[in-house]
Amino acid sequence: MNRRLLPTTVVGSYPKPNWLRRLIREYEKGEISDKVMRRAYDDAVKAVVKEQELAGVDILWDGEMRRDEMTSYFARRIEGFTIYGEVRVWGNNYYPKPAIVDELRYKDELAVSDYKFLRKITDREIKVPITGPYTLVDWSFNEYYRTREEAVYALAEVINQELRRLVDEGANYIQIDDPAVPTHPEEIEVAKNSIEIVTRGVNAYIGMHMCYGDYSKIYPEILEFDVDQIDLEFANRGFKDVEIFKEYEFTKDLGFGCVDVHTRRIESVEEIKDNIRKAFSIVEPKRVYVDPDCGLKLLPSEVAFEKLRNMCQAARELREDLEG
């Protein structure tokens, strides 16, 4: 893809405005109509897109205003899933864990209308993030398929249909969120095959985002995945993992998480410039995409904005230096 040097982007989520959270609660209690809620989501997306534009993000997404969570949101829209209730992740944190109870089949679109709405309201480039089949299966119960592998491949076919529809609508950059892949290095072949199915016949630039687990256990194997870009968190790990990727020639574009989403501290422009330079020891600058480690949804929105703004400024200054 022909882009300018060091394009800046986001992983996907952005903090929901407080007024939207309140409306969602009221909506869940049945106090407001579908129509009002839909309008509220649209307004929230417009606001969040504007913030990303002001911060200077080149390739953006809608902040996932409409998505509550990255597993169940998709599971509810795919035939064959059901949700019995919440299951603990840690402490008092739970998520509605889906269960596969029937053959997985394409039912509703997953992101097509979100994409179409966003296309209407911004001229910037758009990236569509979607949770990968490996992660969706890993974070679900499997009651139907004989093996996990079969479930992953069946789901990969469903996601593939969605990606084709997205491309038909004009999407040209898709990000597969697959944080579960590095947590199961023993199943890396299954994950790789799933990506092959997901991307089959999809004529778009494909990124893959992973933010958990031990990267050393899946490198260099992930270079064989059928994607254009691999996007990883580095800031949260103090950039120690840069060493892992120096060991073999990195043959993909690199999405370089250079801002920590787990701390409210706002990194300075200088600090972020130093961070981004670390990516150049893995790949040449023209293969680097600049983004935060992960989605920003857990941060206060002022903090998210400041982080993005400094990140974009850092990329801009480096770009000028490099282009001389």
Binding site: G85, E86, G91, N92, N93
Partner: peptide, 21 residues
């Protein structure tokens, strides 16, 4: 044993999401 849903909400309220409990 999974916490009864009402007790899960109760703990979330009195302990928050971060504390050790």
């Amino acid at each position: 044993y999974p916490r009864p849903p009402w007790f899960r909400e109760y703990l979330r309220k009195v302990e928050g999401l971060q504390k050790e409990g």
